[in-house]
Write a protein that binds this DNA or RNA. Structure first.
Lengths: 226, 226
DNA sequence: AAAATACATACCGCCAGTCGGTATCAAAAG
DNA sequence: CTTTTGATACCGACTGGCGGTATGTATTTT
């Protein structure tokens, strides 16, 4: 195989391919040979030239997954025209139709076989996303749009509930169950931050979100073939 | 090696040894040979006679870990002298000084290297513990000691926050941070169930709990050697 | 005595990771 | 402009260790 003049393209191809396979089959179940086969035109030596171990590939994959949520939040961060509350609302909105979420949801069969990704989600939520949310909350406290005496803890719980508890990929559920969860989450977050942050416009996205994981749009609507 | 007349003892030894090693080194990092070496007097054939795969051992280990929490809850369940609220309080109390928690906390270096256990905790919390909590909540609603319109969702969130978010093993934190978390959790759970369920008597246990993971009793009290 | 159980041991296939080698490039040297 | 040099991108055979199996043997149960 001819040598690539732009090795970063090769690196990216490896990461993308590994991401796909790790999501589909799980990290442990994916073999380096699987990645090689999926790439088609690279060898073992090529991979181990760019990454020092399989774990190293996983690290790069995790970073890649974190990337788009952090850049989205970073963009929000610089907006001077929004109150803390408005930034929070946008954030919650975004968290359900980001590219990563979509591809992740459509590719991962069930996260039960992917404890690595579950752990990654939990920790990146707490370490990278929550601190930024905390910032928004503190802004909201200053500009008067949010009320709480525990911004740090609130941000952690918020992201945990949004990313994990409400995620049908983690806790599979029917449409009605998801709706009930969402309603209760509205209630709780309202009492946490002193004002509603989750409005019903998220609901549509939420159900698309769920459909991706479960397939059937609803189990509550019996539709005998007419 | 002489054949054991009581094979269930051998099975239990394997499970206990595997539990210990899985916690210390992580599931993936523990080899069958490690288990054999730790056991000292058994061979590979012995293990694969009692368990059909390494995954099968993990399953048994998980069941073992779930066991004591489920029997404790089952015991609470039959108590007719307690209100739903009182059962909830006892449950929260128990969740922090059970044997499993203690041994788990003292053995596991960081759950980051143990995504399997983290996932296991999350799912067993949701599937086995939460439904029982929901029962207590419904009892509490009937006997008037608890108020909520979403017992199911409340139970899920409650156990998630208690087992995962508050767990210093999952999210390592200083004593003050843990205290702040606990205070906020008191607040939230109170608004969730209409009455305080976490009282300060849990706090002592909570700090012991934390000390097991981090070692130092407190970072807030500077004690220069006198 | 026969069957079932509780082990032991040698062995297999597969996997992550290694290592010596080759091909291609960029820049320095002629 | 050509040659040399050294660095980089990649190849593919190989290895050690892993999970798992097959077969054999001693002990218990029936």
């Amino acid at each position: 195989m001819a040598r690539n003049k732009y090795p970063e393209q090769t690196v990216k191809r490896i990461i993308d391919t590994a991401l796909q396979l790790f999501m589909e089959k799980g990290y442990e179940q994916t073999t380096i040979q699987d990645i090689i086969n999926a790439l088609g035109d690279l060898s073992k030596g090529a991979i181990y030239h760019h990454f020092k171990s399989k774990e190293d590939i996983m690290q790069a994959v995790s970073d890649e997954m974190d990337k788009d949520s952090t850049v989205r939040i970073a963009a929000l961060r610089n907006r001077k025209d929004l109150t803390g509350l408005q930034k929070m609302r946008q954030l919650a909105m975004d968290s359900m139709d980001s590219d990563t979420q979509a591809t992740l949801l459509s590719a991962v069969p069930n996260i039960l076989k992917n404890p690595r990704f579950l752990a990654e989600q939990i920790y990146s939520g707490d370490r990278v996303v929550a601190p930024l949310i905390e910032e928004f909350i503190r802004e909201g406290i200053v500009d008067g749009s949010i009320t709480t005496d525990h911004p740090k803890e609130a941000s952690q719980i918020l992201i945990l509930l949004l990313n994990i508890w409400l995620n049908p990929l983690v806790f599979s559920c029917t449409q009605e169950e998801l709706l009930a969860k969402f309603r209760y989450l509205q209630q709780i977050t309202t009492s946490m931050l002193g004002t509603p942050i989750l409005d019903d416009s998220i609901l549509e996205r939420l159900d698309k979100y769920r459909q991706l994981t479960c397939g059937s749009p609803a189990s509550s609507v019996p539709h005998p073939t007419k």
